[in-house]
Design a protein around this nucleic acid. Structure first.
Lengths: 149, 149
DNA sequence: ATGAGTGCAAAGTATTTGCACGTAC
DNA sequence: GTACGTGCAAATACTTTGCACTCAT
């Protein structure tokens, strides 16, 4: 998957200008860092990984602040909420999908199912409800973990 | 809906005995209290409501501890996770359902859709994934709030 | 130049836990 | 009687915020 990071940063720049916000190094760097990290992440995990990378630095506070902006901009989503954990995903250039979460090993499997999406829209119509976003998490045990048992 | 609370408490008693746990007043009272409360709840909300009720008392710690047991027993579910909020529901005697959550007013609309459930099972089969439970939250704006705007 | 952004440490939330006392068995 | 449960206050985990300094415009 070769999403164009420069393109995303260019659009994010426009987004920030539209909001009269500044285009800072940290904000642009974080896009690179999250894209480099390349998988679902929790904030703590990302903070540690960035510390090890050591070339670029973004503080925990800025990460929290910027993640909110990136969610509003639409390239990051809170995809799993489990107990006190929040797992984010960089979704730029990806089709909408939902997740299977293994409660044994934590593995996250993405799946796309247009029929489920369509049915959700029907439900919303039925209740005259305007959907903004949704999250479907299916918790269970993956094939590997079942085999292991 | 006239679910039989005594029946539930009787079953919960068996459940506790099976686990070699004690059948305490707090544990049984909490079932009554949550059923009396009669709607989706957050822990803080329940704590305050119980304090006002004043006839029965269950501490916050015990509520947290007992909610876990009741989830395992199957009569309570964590139905909405939004930011740092966790909203629980007493689901005893109710068919499985999912939720529409209004991001303006916080209203929660329950819906049942067997087709979505079926499709989820198909997805799980496809990935050889054994589902244990799931949560589908659709966030958006309800009819009332749209009219108000 | 100026105000918004950043990093830090402190403050907030939500939840969990250690411990002394109480209660189910 | 004994071990588990409870309530309290302290601890923890995650996230937000006040403030002094820095940087984008």
């Amino acid at each position: 998957m070769s999403i164009n990071l420069n393109e995303i940063k260019r659009e994010f720049t426009k987004f920030l200008k539209r909001k009269n916000m500044k285009v800072t190094q940290s904000r642009l760097d974080l896009i690179d860092l999250i894209a480099d990290y390349g998988k679902h992440f929790e904030v703590e995990e990302l903070v540690n990984w960035i510390a090890m990378q050591s070339d670029k630095t973004v503080s925990r506070s800025t990460i929290y602040r910027t993640i909110k902006l990136l969610q509003e901009f639409g390239v990051i989503k809170e995809v799993i909420k489990q107990g006190s954990r929040t797992i984010y995903e960089f979704v730029a250039g990806k089709a909408h999908h939902d997740h299977l979460v293994c409660v044994e090993c934590g593995k996250i499997i993405e799946f796309v199912n247009e029929d489920i999406e369509k049915l959700q829209d029907e439900v919303c119509d039925q209740y005259d409800f305007q959907p903004l976003h949704h999250r479907l998490e299916i918790f269970g045990i993956c094939a590997d973990c079942r085999r292991r048992q």
